[in-house]
C-alpha cells in the first residue's frame, strides 16, 4: 500500500522520526465532542422532538428512534474518532523543513520550509489551558496555505518549538542567488 502515512514516508531514510501530539489531546477532543453533542441536543433534539410530536403525534416513536440512532452515532464517534485522529496527526522537523500530516479519510501532508516562517503564535484556549496544552500556529506569506496549525502540544513543548522555529527562520537560508 502506498499511502502518505505509511510506506512512502519511510522510504526516505534520513528523515527524522514522526512526533506524535501530546496524548492528553484525546480527552480534550472527547470533551469538545461532548460539548458539541450538548449543543446539538439543546438546539436540535429537544425542539425537534417537541415540534414533531405536536405537529404529527403518531410519529413520536420514529422521532425517538431517529434521535437514538443519532445518539448512538455520536457515542461511537466519541470513543472512536479522537484516538483515530490522534494517530493521523504528526509532525517532524529537521534543520530545514517542518512537515505536518493529518486527516483520516482525506490525508494531508504540509511541508513548510523553515525560512518561510513569517511569525509563530502559541494559542491556548480555555480547554487547552485546563489540559496544559497549546496549539502552534505558523504563518507564511502564502495565500491558500498561509496558516498552518499543530494542535495538542504540551504547553512547554509548544513554546520550545516556537523558539526553535523562530531561531531557524531568522538564521534563514544560504541566500544563494
Amino acid at each position: 500500500m502506498t499511502t502518505i502515512s505509511t510506506t512512502a514516508l519511510r522510504e526516505t531514510p534520513p528523515e527524522p522520526e514522526w512526533v506524535a501530539l501530546d496524548p492528553r489531546v484525546v480527552p480534550l477532543w472527547r470533551v469538545s465532542h461532548l460539548i458539541a453533542s450538548g449543543v446539538l441536543f439543546l438546539f436540535a433534539v429537544v425542539p425537534g422532538t417537541i415540534v414533531g410530536t405536536f405537529v404529527f403525534p403518531p410519529a413520536w416513536p420514529w422521532i425517538i428512534g431517529f434521535w437514538l440512532a443519532l445518539a448512538a452515532l455520536r457515542i461511537w464517534l466519541f470513543f472512536w474518532h479522537p484516538p483515530r485522529v490522534y494517530r493521523a496527526w504528526g509532525y517532524r522537523i529537521d534543520d530545514r523543513v517542518l512537515e505536518i500530516r493529518h486527516g483520516i479519510l482525506f490525508r494531508v501532508l504540509q511541508l513548510l520550509p523553515l525560512s518561510r516562517v513569517q511569525h509563530v503564535d502559541v494559542q491556548r484556549g480555555p480547554l487547552e489551558r485546563r489540559y496544559g496544552l497549546a496549539s502552534l500556529i505558523l504563518h507564511t506569506a502564502g495565500t491558500h496555505a498561509a496558516i498552518l496549525t499543530i494542535p495538542g502540544l504540551d504547553a512547554a513543548e509548544a513554546v520550545r518549538l516556537r523558539d526553535r522555529l523562530i531561531a531557524v527562520a531568522e538564521s534563514g537560508g544560504d541566500d544563494a542567488v
Partner: peptide, 28 residues
C-alpha cells in the same frame, strides 16, 4: 518563491496510489 507545499490524498487517490500536489506562493 514557494511558501509551502501540500500533498493531499483522497480515499480514491489512495486506491489508485496517487496524490495531488499543490504549491503555495504569495499572491495567486
Amino acid at each position: 518563491n514557494i511558501q509551502a507545499i501540500l500533498v493531499r490524498q483522497t480515499p480514491f487517490d489512495r486506491t489508485h496510489r496517487v496524490a495531488s500536489l499543490r504549491v503555495d506562493t504569495a499572491g495567486q
